[in-house]
């Protein structure tokens, strides 16, 4: 039986990766393999990494306000490379009014501040674990 693999990435210029680390840690504790890229990744680097690592999902943590550029860039590149089966989800400080646009551009879900790690795990289990097993 396969293991779920998830890329946790931090695009852009903000240097706050505590949230990303908390999510990475809780996904590991839920039994998933988490690849962590570190800070300041470009959408191109994130997508290349996701493909090399053959992940099921990419979790993007973003606090810089660049979400309306970064998310569509990532989903666009995935599509271009024939990898739009990779699920993209996001978290961070993202205003509610921006969420519909992000969902429309191919992001599966946005977790806003205050989300519990259980919600993230539940999402992964429903959306991905169920699919690969």
């Amino acid at each position: 039986m396969g293991k779920v693999r998830i890329l946790i990435a931090k695009p852009g210029l903000d240097g706050h990766d505590r949230g990303a680390k908390v999510v990475a840690r809780s996904l590991r504790d839920a039994g998933f393999e988490v690849i962590y890229t570190g800070l300041r990744q470009t959408p191109e680097a994130i997508v290349n990494t996701a493909i090399q690592e053959d992940v099921d999902a990419i979790g993007i943590s973003i606090l810089s306000g660049a979400h309306n550029t970064v998310f569509p860039a990532i989903t666009g590149l995935l599509k271009e490379k024939g990898a739009s089966d990779i699920v993209v989800f996001g978290g961070g400080v993202i205003p509610d009014e921006d969420i519909p646009f992000l969902l429309e551009s191919g992001v599966a879900i946005i977790f806003t501040p205050g989300t519990s790690t259980e919600d993230v795990i539940k999402f992964v289990n429903e959306k991905i674990t169920a699919k690969i097993h």
């Binding site: 293991k3 840690r25 839920a30 988490v34 962590y36 570190g38 990494t49 690592e53």
Partner: peptide, 30 residues
């Protein structure tokens, strides 16, 4: 992790400059 079976694979962090080089393929393994 011997407890959950999960893993955090973080070696790539130090190799980030090669992420867009087509001549380099990095794979994290647990």
């Amino acid at each position: 992790s011997p407890f959950s079976g999960g893993a955090i694979l973080g070696d790539r962090i130090r190799m980030a400059t090669h992420a867009n080089d087509e001549g380099v393929f990095i794979r994290s393994v647990a």
